[in-house]
């Protein structure tokens, strides 16, 4: 057809742009994309490489068998050491101690589990901490709860 030269030129330009776009895109698709689904499969491996902070179940036992035995015989047997102390990784690495394991003597730690709350299962041991200490004569009403108030009587490992 005559008088359509400009249209063919425009078409050609679009075609070249389109093909170039498809070509460039092809090289920008990351490797392993689509291997197992519409995602970069190697990213799964990257998740695996993230650092482990908390030790495995029983990892404390390898050094602290004695305390572990005591604890396992008591009521706190099902409480992981790291819940009250800190993650293993702050204390040991590669079987070597790297820093002291923190201990938290505060009553607030005990209260996170044992403060009486209406929403807690009824059979779970819990107490109104303030009232309990007032009843025992440890403190007067309106006073602040003294540090380490709970562990004076209740030893978390030997309970």
């Amino acid at each position: 057809m005559e008088h359509t030269k400009h249209l063919w030129r425009a078409f050609l330009i679009l075609l070249v742009l389109g093909v170039a776009g498809i070509f460039v895109r092809h090289f920008l698709i990351p490797e392993s994309f689509g291997e197992q689904g519409f995602y970069r499969y190697t990213s799964l491996g990257e998740f695996k490489e993230k650092p482990v902070i908390h030790g495995a179940v029983g990892s404390c036992t390898s050094c602290h068998q004695e305390i572990a035995d005591t604890k396992t015989a008591g009521k706190h047997a099902s409480v992981s050491c790291e819940v009250c102390h800190a993650p293993e990784s702050v204390h040991a690495a590669g079987g070597q101690k790297i820093a002291d394991m923190p201990t938290n003597p505060s009553h607030t730690l005990c209260a996170t589990c044992h403060q009486f709350l209406e929403a807690r299962p009824k059979e779970f041991p819990q107490v109104d901490v303030t009232q309990h200490l007032i009843d025992l004569g440890v403190m007067a009403k309106g006073e602040a709860i003294p540090d380490g108030a709970c562990i004076v009587c209740h030893q978390p490992h030997t309970l």
């Binding site: 799964l44 998740f47 695996k48 490489e49 993230k50 650092p51 482990v52 902070i53 908390h54 495995a56 179940v57 706190h76 099902s78 409480v79 992981s80 790291e82 819940v83 589990c113 779970f124």
Partner: peptide
């Protein structure tokens, strides 16, 4: 994922004192 692929429990499960 970095734990369960090594046979460990998820941190939340391991931390739960009551199961």
């Amino acid at each position: 994922y970095h734990r369960i692929t090594k046979g460990m429990l998820p941190a939340c499960v391991q931390a739960c004192p009551t199961g």
